[in-house]
């Protein structure tokens, strides 16, 4: 009983981070081999690719480009918000309810590994969407092969910064909601509304002027704009607000969301983790059962 472990704390931490990455990978495999997930991935992405097909011959606000050329980067940006914000919030809400989080808390360095796994899975999921859209784009939109290296680098930068800007806020929502159902409602509906006003499927210039600042207050718009900036030729900027790409503002807004999120999320997550206990999971389960009954 008097054993004292001689483990250096730092090595246990590195070990847990490695386990978290492995965990995220395993969860990704579970998702890819799960029938319901497969259907969701095929149907959702099928719809979006279908939109690209339909828009192929429409004109982008008199620029001479096809509307699909602007929608593809918009989709890639939207996909980041879905994976980073909505995905993280829902996963956290569900896993608080089913006890996964309590399990993590009961395991040495389990919480750290859990968070690493959440980030890993969100990035993998979002990257999967990115690849699907890019492959579809290569077939549907010949212009994509002309994107210079700098464009691809910017896409990567906006992708990573976008994940940083959205995941912490997803975690805040997931940690705050009372049930998994609320987690879905609180993220999915605002998502749809923001996508509708942020010029993802149709140039924002077609929206009423008063909606522009509303859209610009949220990362959805800036992720779409950033991806268009990365992938579209300069001439396509005519369809943007003010007729130009706002590269600096894009990075500024996303960076601000990321910085603030990384400041707030750890506190909210710590408070949530402190409160997690067997009876908390029990009472949530009881409420969920009532909801079904």
């Amino acid at each position: 009983m008097s054993d004292t472990t001689t483990t250096r704390p730092s090595s246990a931490v590195t070990h847990a981070v490695r386990l978290g990455v492995r965990r995220g990978g395993i969860e990704m495999m579970h998702s890819l081999t799960n029938r319901a997930d497969q259907i969701w991935i095929v149907v959702m992405n099928g719809i979006f690719v279908g939109v690209l097909v339909l828009q192929r011959n429409s004109d982008l606000a008199g620029t001479g480009f096809s509307l699909a050329v602007a929608t593809l980067p918009g989709l890639i940006g939207m996909n980041v918000v879905m994976g980073g914000w909505m995905g993280t919030a829902q996963m956290l809400a569900v896993e608080r309810e089913d006890g996964t989080l309590l399990r993590a808390k009961s395991t040495p360095h389990g919480m750290l590994a859990y968070l690493v796994a959440r980030v890993t899975l969100a990035v993998l999921n979002t990257a999967l969407g990115l690849v699907i859209f890019l492959v579809a784009g290569l077939f549907l939109l010949p212009g994509l092969t002309d994107v210079p290296l700098s464009g691809w680098l910017m896409l990567l930068a906006v992708f990573l910064l976008g994940m940083l800007a959205t995941m912490p806020w997803g975690a805040v929502v997931g940690a705050s909601v009372k049930s998994a159902g609320a987690g879905f409602g609180l993220t999915f509906l605002p998502m749809i509304a923001l996508i509708a006003i942020s010029g993802i499927f149709y140039p924002i210039t077609g929206m009423p002027d008063w909606l522009h600042p509303v859209a610009q207050a949220f990362p959805v718009y800036w992720l779409g704009a950033g991806m268009r900036d990365a992938l579209l030729p300069d001439a396509a900027a005519a369809a943007e607000l003010g007729g130009q790409f706002h590269t600096l503002t894009t990075f500024g807004v996303l960076g601000a969301y990321a910085a603030l999120g990384l400041l707030v999320a750890p506190r909210v997550l710590r408070a949530m983790a402190r409160k997690e206990s067997g009876s908390a999971v029990e009472s949530r389960k009881a409420k969920a059962m009532q909801g079904w009954g």
Binding site: T5, T7, S11, R22, R23, G99, T100, R103, P108, V281
Partner: peptide, 29 residues
């Protein structure tokens, strides 16, 4: 061992035990 746990429903039994066991390896004596 809590009263009721429904977590890790997608994990296979051996896979889950192997994964969760690994967290304890640094604390082996």
């Amino acid at each position: 061992v809590q009263q009721s746990w429904r977590d890790h429903g997608r994990w296979r039994v051996r896979q889950l035990l192997t994964h969760l066991g690994a967290y304890y390896a640094p604390f082996s004596t």
